[in-house]
Design a protein around this nucleic acid. Structure first.
Length: 201
DNA sequence: AAAGAGATGGTCT
DNA sequence: GACCATCTCTTTT
């Protein structure tokens, strides 16, 4: 059941529609900062968190899975914008991406870090009670925290009935996000498509 | 606080 | 058979 204060109605906002994701990956990536990642799973556990780090990948980008063309793995990246692309990384971890750009164009935004805001106790247990700031500060950790797995590959994030959604609750994306080289890649290193919300300190 | 290495399996050449 | 859009644990500063 729900913990106190974690009911879905806690987050009110609009479900972003498919056309919102139709723009180029770097643009969507910046605009995704401060949006909410929401997961409503079959057991009715409800978790949500604010997206604070993303990376953009386009089709003409040598670091992108789609650079060498369509395969069975990257098929979803060529599909409709607003779908979820999940793949297995290093044989161990899942990484979740949001498909962007026009259908047929292989672009996506990798979710790299989220700050949990709802269902934190569920997330803590899924993450084996690690310190709160390490709950979802990496692509594989997000998938653990939100229970996103390979069978979510292709899920439509823009559907009312979808178990995973992106919600705009009115918090604006930062005007000047940090922009840096992407992580863990060997090609396309000079492209500054890793975007983060500036962290005040 | 930083650096190093092992785990582990699908995808592609 | 090489290459990973990573994480965690261990060792060293």
């Amino acid at each position: 059941m729900f913990e106190a204060g974690t009911e879905p109605q806690d987050h009110t906002g609009r479900l972003l529609p498919a056309p919102w994701f139709e723009r180029d990956a770097p643009t969507v990536a910046r605009d995704l900062l401060n949006k909410l990642l929401v997961a409503r799973l079959p057991d009715h556990e409800y978790v949500a968190g604010r997206i604070v780090e993303v990376e953009a990948y386009t089709q003409d980008d040598p670091a992108s899975h789609t650079f060498t063309g369509r395969t069975s793995r990257n098929e979803v990246m060529f599909g409709p914008p607003g779908n979820l692309y999940v793949y297995l990384s290093y044989g161990i971890h899942c990484c979740a991406n949001i498909v962007t750009g026009p259908e047929g164009d292989g672009q996506a935004v990798l979710l790299r870090a989220v700050i949990p805001e709802r269902g934190i106790n569920v997330i803590r247990s899924r993450r084996q009670n690690r310190p709160d700031r390490n709950l979802a500060d990496g692509p594989g950790k997000i998938c653990q925290a939100f229970a996103i797995a390979l069978d979510h590959n292709g899920v439509d994030l823009t559907e009312d009935s979808s178990p995973i959604q992106i919600i705009d609750d009115g918090v604006a994306a930062p005007l000047y996000p940090r922009a840096d080289p992407r992580v863990g890649i060997s090609k396309g290193v000079s492209t500054l498509w890793r975007f983060r919300t500036p962290i005040p300190r």
